[in-house]
Nucleic acid binder design. Structure first.
Lengths: 260, 260
DNA sequence: GTGATTGGAAAGTTTGACTCTCCAGCGCGG
DNA sequence: CCGCGCTGGAGAGTCAAACTTTCCAATCAC
């Protein structure tokens, strides 16, 4: 029952074979013809009332109207609905955040600025609870110091990040928490995390490089940030459990003689 | 204005020097003597009403009663209050989740099982929105397949994770989302993320190894999971912004001749 | 001894994300 | 050509979470 360190070898074709049985039957968008809201609801699994609500909130484009009380929807609406659901359920984004994302999806702004900050501004802001609000407490000075240290850290890393990016405040929140609890006092404790984060960002961007269409690129970035972020947290949790167990095993076998 | 890849060199004493100016004035818990709820509120910056609410919810131990309407609190209460606030504000944990964490903090269960799963069960569950609920849709079979693929993946990685760990379901949710959108079909896309996650778990556990006291260890693990998790997300967001800008620069200079 | 504080509990508030209810207009099987 | 069941649209209602307010009697602090 010994727990050992995973090795993470490169993936071989034989490994891929292992997962073939699971890839059957996923997705079949045969009939893409126009349909009404009831059919849209049936295909997406989202209640009609909720779809209406999303329409009102501007998360989904309105259908092609055919009469005063009739409209038709197509494959694009179905996909958008699925994207919205993923952002909400997997990413836990609020309606307001999703609205910002779809605004970038629909609007034809130029990529450089918009796309680069999409994740930071619309998706990560508010993901970690409500950090970043109500900083009017007595420790406002303390917090400003945390932010200043964080900004110095970001510059020291050589990261080119917008001065107003919420990620700076979020990182400052994390530092401020560590300081309040006396766990750490300067942002250098995040150095290794920064290295990992950068490596991960490279990998993720590599994986969706071949995308050409503008809207598809934005969608891939938004969905990717949310889904891979969620997946990473789950994997980190599992790794923690595995590693903790590993070390407890080691501690146990060190304090007690071999059992058999 | 060229954006370049950060290098992440090892931290030198000169680097540490750089952050010294910021570490002044943080934390000063001089007088730890017993005090009443008003003083506790003043020191923590939490409203009296909210402290009462936390007491009712069992997030904070009750004070030492001195009369029918009087009780005294000490340094332990102040620290607990700060921990609760960090879990809530930085980690975005719900009251119910925090209650589970403090139950482990207070309860004297044996470490092996409890501590190993603390993060997975109490903290990560529900962090990514409400993924994991209401799986009674028509795609229930599809989801079961995603979970099966995920479990195969976890075994393939060699991770020793509890069979009922919510992290499995969370990872399955992520895979299911990718499949629903046709972005990926098997869990091997998460391989690099798993490697990173494991490396990060090792680093984090290393950083809080010297803790000996049981309650302090649990606290460090819970706070660490929340704070470093939040920090990592922020850093990932910045790395994405930096890297996206880097590639757009490269694309621009490739399509156009050097500007100067 | 008198005004501010406290412990405790019940009731009220706010926000977010739906969900329900209506009401005319539409569509079509009988 | 007619009733019954979808529609689109909008307002009101619901529900849970996390506080916040309000009350009361007991205390404390000066």
């Amino acid at each position: 029952m010994a727990v050992s360190r995973p090795q993470f070898p490169p993936v071989t074709p034989a490994d891929r074979e292992l997962f073939n049985p699971f890839t059957k039957g996923s997705q079949q968008d045969d009939d893409q013809g126009p349909f009404r809201i009831g059919e849209l609801s049936r295909r997406s699994g989202v209640a009609v009332g909720t779809i209406k609500f999303y329409l009102r909130e501007g998360l989904i484009p309105v259908g092609q109207p055919t009469a005063k009380t009739q409209a038709l929807y197509g494959a694009a609406h179905l996909r958008r609905l699925r994207v919205v659901r993923v952002l909400a359920e997997v990413g836990g984004l609020s309606i307001a955040q999703i609205r910002e994302v779809v605004a970038v999806l629909d609007g034809g702004g130029d990529l450089p600025g918009e796309l680069a900050q999409l994740v930071s501004y619309s998706i990560d802001r508010g993901r970690t609870g409500n950090a970043g609000r109500s900083r009017e407490g007595l420790d406002a000075d303390d917090w400003e110091q945390s932010l200043a240290a964080t900004n110095t850290f970001v510059s020291w890393l050589g990261l080119d990040v917008d001065a107003g990016a919420p990620a700076r405040a979020n990182l400052a929140d994390a530092l401020h928490a560590l300081r309040a609890l006396g766990i750490a006092h300067d942002p250098l404790v995040f150095t290794e995390h920064a290295r990992m984060a950068y490596e991960l960002a490279e990998i993720e961007i590599d994986s969706l490089d071949p995308v050409t269409d503008r809207s598809a690129a934005v969608e891939a970035i938004a969905v990717g940030a949310v889904v891979f972020g969620s997946a990473f947290i789950a994997l980190r949790s599992m790794a923690q459990e595995h590693e903790t167990r590993l070390r407890l095993d080691a501690a146990a076998s060190a304090s007690a003689p071999p059992a058999s």
